[in-house]
């Protein structure tokens, strides 16, 4: 009898965990949908940064094709960073975050779900917009699949790592620049392997290794980052 009860409990616990995950995801997506500027600003920023390079350096197609992977990746990285500050900010200001921390629900799941929602509003649109930038920067057609796949695998890691910075600075009035200082050095591995994957795709080298590495970083991020985010949130909110 006892065993049945515990089994039932674990079943229901699993259900509530998934339920919790979806509820938080739905709520965050709904909030983002209602506040559309947060959705579009990083995208516009992404386009603008990529426009600056031909204007600032050279409109030469050969040259642009060579730097395109790096430019798109750096622009995506900065756009993600720009949107990071809002991740916990509004929840912190209206007190929702404090309630969330006090609730008995596991913070790990809530945080993971919030980061996923954030990625769906920043990383995913950026990935979908990337081919447009690729065309503007004369990236060869062979590189497009590499660009999109590398962004698809890389931007969730950027969101996860950026969320650590957002959680550490949420209690501060001017967190924006500080997040960049904290997080940019940690973005370097993703940037290196992301651009390398695109360059390999352009030159026709095998890609699997890069995607494996990006995937490994994502897996590590999914397991480790929510722990750091949860710890950082507890510190920032209680202090």
């Amino acid at each position: 009898m006892e065993q049945i009860l515990t089994n039932e409990r674990s079943d229901s616990a699993e259900n509530t965990l998934m339920g919790l995950f979806w509820a938080v995801l739905k709520r965050d997506l709904m909030l983002a949908y209602r506040k559309k500027s947060d959705l579009f600003n990083p995208l516009v920023f992404f386009l603008m940064v990529a426009t600056l390079f031909p204007l600032g350096v050279s409109p030469e197609p050969d040259f642009l094709a060579e730097v395109a992977p790096g430019v798109v990746w750096v622009a995506a990285l900065l756009a993600t960073l720009l949107s990071m500050d809002s991740l916990f900010r509004s929840d912190f200001e209206d007190g929702t975050l404090e309630q969330t921390l006090l609730s008995p629900q596991p913070l790990f799941v809530i945080v993971l779900s919030k980061v996923l929602a954030h990625w769906m509003m920043s990383g995913l649109p950026l990935t979908l917009l990337a081919p447009l930038l690729g065309v503007m920067l004369f990236l060869p057609a062979e590189g497009m699949s590499g660009l999109m796949l590398s962004l698809l695998l890389g931007t969730p890691t950027l969101s996860l790592v950026g969320a650590i910075g957002a959680a550490l600075t949420v209690g501060l009035r001017k967190g924006g620049v500080l997040i960049s200082l904290l997080v940019l050095p940690l973005y370097i591995p993703v940037l290196i392997f992301g651009t390398s994957a695109v360059q390999a795709a352009v030159t026709g080298l095998p890609l699997a290794g890069f995607f494996a590495l990006l995937g490994a970083m994502l897996a590590l991020g999914v397991v480790m980052a929510p722990l750091a985010i949860a710890a950082a949130l507890r510190i920032s909110v209680s202090g």
Partner: peptide
């Protein structure tokens, strides 16, 4: 708070 926050950041680093 500063000590705890920077400890978390140092560990992430």
């Amino acid at each position: 708070t500063a000590a705890q926050s920077s400890a978390v950041l140092a560990l992430v680093g």
